[in-house]
Amino acid sequence: MDIVLRGIFVFFALYVLMRVIGRRELSKLEPFDLILLIILGDAVQQGLTQDDYSLTGAMLAIVTIAVLQIAVSFLNFRFPRLRPVLNGEPVVIVQDGKPIDRNLRRERLTLDDLAESARLQGIGSLDDVAWGVLETSGEISFIKKSA
């Protein structure tokens, strides 16, 4: 029972933490971010199963988290009103080649971040962008101006 309760607590604590950290930080995995994720995983594991080395304990932890993930996914699908809370919403950050400063600030994005994302998608100048949208996944999607 203890592991299931710990699993539930850890799942929701991580869910809230990930929503607070911000989508952008989570979408880009630079070397240091990767190391942080590994440390986070290790720290969580210690609290989740503690000194339980059993297969039963591991399965309890894994299945608890999987069930909760499915439940959250179902809520997200079934109740559209919950989506903004559970999943977030897209934010328009570029319109007609012009960055929207207020929205960039809100998402802690700099113009350099924006230009980098554009370059990664083969766009050399924001002037060529009709719409730039920060998606709920943390990725930035660009829609080019029509020729």
Binding site: E89, P90, V91, A130, W131, V133, I143, K145
Partner: peptide
């Protein structure tokens, strides 16, 4: 100017 992307609402997603 390209059309607004599907399921994007300017008041909601641009003006927040």
């Amino acid at each position: 100017m390209a059309a607004i992307p599907d399921r994007i609402s300017l008041p909601r997603h641009r003006d927040l």
